[in-house]
């Protein structure tokens, strides 16, 4: 590939990513207007297994994965740092 084209391509890619991110955020904010489940109808949603956070017991697995794998984060927990890990 021609070297001079690389920065331009990177810019285009970044622009594409920003557009995708913007679209995602727009979609998310549109979704929130569609439904409103009342408090008295949240018996299933409030079930402990429906929690959107990782279970506390999962922390040790996340910890070894941070050492043994390169990817981390985007799970509401550790994103990197605080250990000599990846």
């Amino acid at each position: 590939m021609m070297l001079w084209a690389e920065p331009i391509l990177l810019k285009i890619l970044k622009l594409k990513m920003i557009k995708q991110l913007f679209l995602l955020l727009t979609l998310l904010f549109l979704v929130q207007g569609c439904v409103a489940v009342k408090e008295y109808n949240k018996i299933y949603i409030n079930d402990t297994d429906m929690q959107l956070a990782s279970p506390g017991m999962e922390r040790f697995e996340t910890n070894f994965q941070i050492y043994r794998e390169t990817a981390a984060g985007a799970n509401g927990g550790k994103t990197g740092g605080g250990c000599g890990c990846n």
Partner: peptide, 14 residues
Amino acid sequence: QILSNRLQFSVFLD
């Protein structure tokens, strides 16, 4: 976001 009384999702970006 809660989508129905049985379905919800979360998006995380770091």
